[in-house]
């Protein structure tokens, strides 16, 4: 591997910047990225001097979700391998969600499917106002699974019922309205907006923040291991179905999947 897929930098203030570094494929995640993120979050969680984490991405897109090349490969897996892969993904989101310090998603471009999971699992999300969003899994015969607990916690069941089922694109203003984002600002103002929130966080007492974040999670209802295992089982099951296989095949064959015949895209 020549280029690292996940970059981490920790500055003198204790602010870690984690960068998705696969711009050429819209920062979609494959096995290496999931492991890279998981290990990086694991390492950050153990640092007592950490004050905040910013999750950002290189290039035009923030994150296009799961790499379909990887998804295609999973089609050749045994059931046990398939489930193990899905659990690894769920575990990565859990580690991000439970990082003990405040986390900020700095969303410079569009995000789809699993990319929305990364945003929703952060405490605070700010995006450039040209970014677009969609929960696209059902277009491919799949479901939003591992990301669902985080996304539903952020946008509520009402918005989830719409966007999980329509897979329609929505803009940053709508993403802010439904709660995925806390702010949408012109691209040129994104750095300043994130720095402003960080400046506020760095005025706050570190142990208070850790206690506060933990309490909010507990009071709101923790995303338990049972929930994570359940979502992993659901995605593992659906991607092995004929519909799931058809959706991924259609994508690579650049044709409409069978269920779309006779409809307008």
């Amino acid at each position: 591997m020549t280029e690292k897929t996940v970059l981490v930098d920790i500055d003198g203030r204790g602010v870690a910047t984690v960068t998705l570094n696969r711009a050429e494929v819209h920062n979609c995640f494959n096995e290496a990225v999931v492991i890279g993120l998981r290990d990086c979050f694991d390492d950050l969680a153990g640092r007592d001097d950490l004050r905040a984490v910013v999750l950002q991405a290189e290039g035009k897109s923030f994150c296009a979700g799961v790499d379909l090349n990887w998804m295609k490969e999973i089609g050749t897996f045994t059931e046990a391998e398939n489930v193990a892969d899905a659990k690894r993904m769920a575990g990565m989101f859990d580690k991000l969600n439970t990082l003990p310090v405040p986390t900020i998603a700095k969303v410079q471009g569009s995000a789809f499917a699993g990319g929305l999971g990364l945003i929703a699992a952060c405490d605070i999300a700010v995006a450039a106002d040209h970014a677009k969003f969609a929960v696209t899994e059902v277009r491919l015969g799949l479901i939003a699974a591992a990301i669902s607990p985080y996304l539903i916690a952020a946008i509520g069941a009402g918005a989830a019922r719409r966007y999980f089922q329509t897979a329609e694109r929505f803009d940053a203003a709508e993403a802010k309205r439904i709660g995925l984002l806390h702010d949408a600002v012109p691209a040129a103002a994104l750095d300043g907006a994130v720095d402003g929130i960080l400046a506020n966080i760095l005025k706050n007492a570190p142990a208070s923040l850790r206690a506060c974040k933990r309490l909010i999670g507990e009071c709101a209802g923790p995303i338990t291991e049972d929930i994570q295992n359940d979502t992993a089982a659901r995605i593992a099951a659906i991607r092995a179905t004929p519909e799931g296989q058809e959706g991924i095949s259609a994508f690579f064959e650049k044709r409409q999947p069978a269920w779309m015949a006779g409809t307008e895209g």
Binding site: C212, K213, I216
Partner: peptide
Amino acid sequence: LLGRIGQRECRRWCLSGE
């Protein structure tokens, strides 16, 4: 706060103190 503003906004405003 959770009842009023939900977990999403709760995390932001409790953590940032803005």
